[in-house]
């Protein structure tokens, strides 16, 4: 087994240092080493998007990133989306629009939507569908998810996201 490495990152605004094996993915380290189970594993090969996190503001499948690559990166996960003041507009919109059924894909979808709205505060339906195409949901048929993102955009999600 290769030697373990120390990696220094920022996760949800706080500096985090962890020890990992070179073969461990960032998803595995988040879940197994750091006990941050909000990021979900659906396929471990980048197909389903359940493990989406933000790295330096970009939506990324954390199962496709090796943990050692995270050195110096700024990572955001679902655990950091709500604040002490309450839920993020996207989270509120997902609840109000009934945009989740089983909920396993929800953290990943919220992270992808957050990245989209930060970049494009007033997306069209087409742009929302394109931005979320990497996040599979098997329960909802996506209708209410798209509406939730539209609703969050209207609530001024972009300003809240900053």
């Amino acid at each position: 087994m290769a030697k373990k490495r120390v990696v220094t990152t920022k996760i949800n605004g706080r500096p985090v240092e962890f020890l990992c094996e070179p073969r461990q993915t960032l998803l595995e380290v988040l879940r197994e080493n750091l006990d941050m189970i909000g990021t979900k594993e659906g396929c471990s090969n980048g197909n389903c998007g359940a493990c989406t996190i933000l790295i330096d503001g970009k939506a990324v499948d954390s199962c496709l990133v090796l943990a050692v690559e995270a050195e110096g990166m700024n990572i955001e996960t679902i655990e950091g989306v709500a604040s002490a003041d309450g839920l993020h507009p996207l989270q509120q919109a997902f609840l109000e629009e009934a945009a989740l059924q089983c909920g396993i894909c929800t953290p990943g979808l919220i992270m992808s939507a957050k990245a989209l709205l930060a970049q494009n505060p007033d997306p069209t339906e087409e742009e929302i569908r394109f931005a979320l195409a990497g996040n599979l949901c098997r329960c909802t048929g996506y209708d209410k998810i798209v509406r939730a993102v539209q609703s969050a955009a209207k609530m001024g999600c972009a300003s809240a996201a900053k």
Binding site: I37, G38, K40, V81, L87, L95, G103, I104
Partner: peptide, 23 residues
Amino acid sequence: TRPIRPDGVDKVTGRARYGADIR
């Protein structure tokens, strides 16, 4: 009526525990 589901907040904040989340 259309109230917010009781388990909703846990599911949008990543706190809900699914099968693989048991440790």
